[in-house]
Computed example of a mutant assay.
Amino acid sequence: MPIALYALALGGFGIGLTEFVIMGLLPEVAADFGVTETVAGYLISGYALAVAIGAIILTALLNRLDRKKSLLFLMLLFIIGNLLSATGPSYELVMVGRVIAALCHGAFFGIGSVLAADLVAPNKRAGAIAFMFAGLTIANVLGVPFGTLLGQATGWRSTFWAITAIGIIAFIGLIALVPGNLARSPRTGIFAEFGIFRSPQVWLSMLVTILGYGGMFGAFTYIAFTLTGVSGFAASSVPWLLVLFGVGLFVGNILGGRAADRNLAATLITVLSILTVVLVAFALTAGNQIATIVALLLMGGIGFATVPGLQMRIMNHAAHAPTLASGANIAAFNVGNALGAWVGGLAIAAGLGYTSPLWAGAGITAAGLAVMLIATRMPGGEHAKAKPRVSERASASVG
């Protein structure tokens, strides 16, 4: 892989750490500012909302600039946001820091996905995107547990100081490793770029992302309750079980990218089918600890195997504005996160038990699979022209 991908992956690592590590530090943040954990939790939802907004707006605005300069600007936002989170004397200022850092999230992965794909041969594009997203998966495997331990031992602000330092290193890496001659965006107008949203396939791609990934994330959101309340694991075991889930994310991301390079549509259909089965099997066997460990690993691996393919599909269907399409799909991932968490929460609130988010996730993922199957058969889809009708073949022979 080109060395520039390592700089992109490091940026992805820092961004992933910023997004997820706060979950383990909410009690300390709440105690420090004298707010409830619910109010402290707004630091997570506020971040997610800012990601969705920044993914589209900033990507569209920055797409007229050189991609390398765009990434440097976004990483600068990341550094400023985390520095404010590390030093902000009030809850409100920390929220501002979270929002600033989140604005770079979607645009960084959106622009970075296109840049990563441009750095390699056409038959390796999904693999290059997966390599960049490997930083995000490593953040879950190693960054979040150790970032949480650091924050618990030396204060939650120390974690954000460490993330700021990672951002500075990534900024330097982008300067040194990303070539300017491969990093230029096409010069198209903003309104012309937004024309991609006239394509049904772009909207279908985003819907597959929302449903296909949202089902897995919805199940994951409440996984601690499932592990302790159904599987019978001690609360102290949960962080290490989540590391196992993160290992699945890392492996699934790499293998999913390779498979998508071989056959994009078949990979997405196969992976979404298997993910639905895994979520159902997990719900049925959650009372067995060994089965739960296996299912947790598979849920992470199969769930994140969709990511490179989902990014590639929307980029393929928006060839004249792939950067904006890529950013919009990052927003779709976050909408899926919110949808899955909301539906899973409703299921628990309805008294359906701690396996209900798994059942809800399976249903949402199955809906994503159905949309994917429909999309491939519609005009512009991967299989739309695969097999001409008999009448069409007859007409061709007559002509």
Rank of each mutant, 00 (worst) to 15 (best):
F194T: 09
S158R: 03
L204K: 11
Q201W: 09
S185D: 02
V178N: 02
L211Y: 05
V178M: 08
L211H: 11
R187C: 01
R184Q: 08
L150Q: 01
L174S: 02
A224C: 12
I223P: 04
A176L: 14
Q152N: 07
T226K: 05
L177D: 00
A219M: 14
Y213F: 15
V208H: 02
G214W: 06
F220E: 14
A153P: 00
M216R: 10
L174N: 03
T154Y: 09
G155K: 03
L149R: 02
T164Y: 02
T154G: 00
G214K: 11
P179R: 04
L204G: 14
A219G: 15
L150K: 01
F194V: 10
G151V: 02
L177R: 00
T154S: 11
L177K: 00
T159N: 10
L207P: 09
N181P: 00
W156N: 08
T159R: 05
F225Y: 11
A153S: 13
L227N: 12
T226H: 07
A153V: 04
G218H: 10
L149A: 08
L211W: 06
T209R: 12
I223F: 11
F197W: 14
T226P: 02
N181T: 06
G189V: 01
I196V: 15
L174I: 14
T209H: 13
G215Q: 11
P179T: 03
F171H: 11
L204A: 11
I163A: 08
G212Y: 13
A165L: 14
V208K: 07
A183I: 07
L177I: 00
G167D: 04
F217L: 15
F220V: 15
T188G: 05
F220G: 12
F217I: 15
M216C: 14
W203Q: 12
L174F: 05
A224Y: 10
R187G: 02
S158E: 08
V208P: 06
I196S: 05
G151Q: 04
R157K: 03
P200A: 14
L177T: 00
G214N: 08
L174H: 02
A224S: 15
R198P: 06
W156P: 04
L204W: 10
R157V: 04
T154P: 00
G218S: 13
Y213L: 15
L150A: 00
W161M: 12
P200E: 13
G214F: 09
F191C: 00
P179K: 04
E193V: 07
I196E: 07
Q152S: 05
P186E: 09
G189T: 10
V178H: 01
G218T: 14
T221K: 09
R157M: 06
F197M: 12
Y213E: 03
S199P: 08
F160E: 08
P186V: 01
T148C: 05
S158K: 07
T221I: 13
L211V: 14
S185T: 03
A192W: 02
G155F: 02
